Amino acid sequence: MTHPNSLDLEAFACGDSVAGVSAHLEACPECRAFVERARQLVASDAPRPPARRTTPRRFVVPLAAAALAAAAALLLVVRAPESETTFKGGTRLAVMRDRDGAQAWFTSSLSVQPGDQLRLEVALDHEQSVLGAIVGDDGSYLELLSAKTRPAGTHLSERSARVDATPLDATIVVGSDEAVDRARRLHRFDDVIHVRIRWEAAP
């Protein structure tokens, strides 16, 4: 199923008439839940979520990889529908940080606290195989965007990561399988798109 983009869903929740959204909501419980949540935020006079936000998530499952326990005790989230927006301009990476329901996007570096949830958005200007992962300074590794050939467009990572109370310093990397493997082994990021993660002590 092709889902409307988040901008159209938010506009519909705010009362705008958006072609095709109403009919889609009748058949898609995920998007209905997303719109309902947005309407509740508007009704309660809460700040409107940033325009670029993820599509609805389905459920959270615990991360079993023991190698990452020392890094962040991350949780995996089942994939959300991918965007189909196309663009030109190479490979681009943005990291969405959800902190207590407030979402913000970062393209060079970001800080994290316990409870933060991270998701990747990768934009491609041509079809190519890419992989996205978190490479911890301590050698830990977590794949968020599986390695496969993807068409031109914007793609959300199939998984997101939630940070626990263990301090986390790491780098999010996106690139070919070989480039990501080199970055993981050598901790050199010249051949990958990357965003730096720094630990921020909770207030």
Rank of each mutant, 00 (worst) to 15 (best):
S108V: 05
L142V: 08
P151K: 15
L75R: 13
A161M: 14
H24W: 04
L74S: 13
M1H: 02
A11H: 02
D45A: 06
A11Q: 06
Q117E: 14
L142H: 04
P203S: 15
K148L: 13
A19Y: 00
F87H: 04
H126A: 08
A51G: 06
L131E: 00
H126D: 03
T2M: 09
L68Y: 10
M96Y: 03
F189H: 06
F106P: 00
A161K: 14
L156R: 09
R92N: 01
V192F: 12
T149D: 11
D190T: 10
V180C: 08
C31P: 02
S160N: 14
V42M: 00
R37W: 03
A69I: 12
T166G: 09
S44D: 02
H24P: 05
T85H: 05
L63W: 15
S6M: 00
Q128E: 07
C14F: 12
A73Y: 15
L7G: 00
L124N: 03
A94C: 07
A27G: 08
V174M: 14
A202T: 09
A147G: 10
A67H: 13
E121N: 04
R53F: 07
Q40Y: 05
F34G: 00
L131S: 02
A202I: 10
L9A: 01
Y141C: 08
L68F: 10
P203W: 15
S160E: 15
I193H: 11
A13L: 15
G15E: 06
L120S: 05
S176K: 11
I172M: 14
D137P: 06
V130K: 13
T154W: 06
V78P: 04
F59G: 09
A170Q: 13
K88C: 05
D181T: 08
L74T: 10
N5H: 02
L118W: 05
H194N: 11
A80P: 05
I134F: 12
E82F: 05
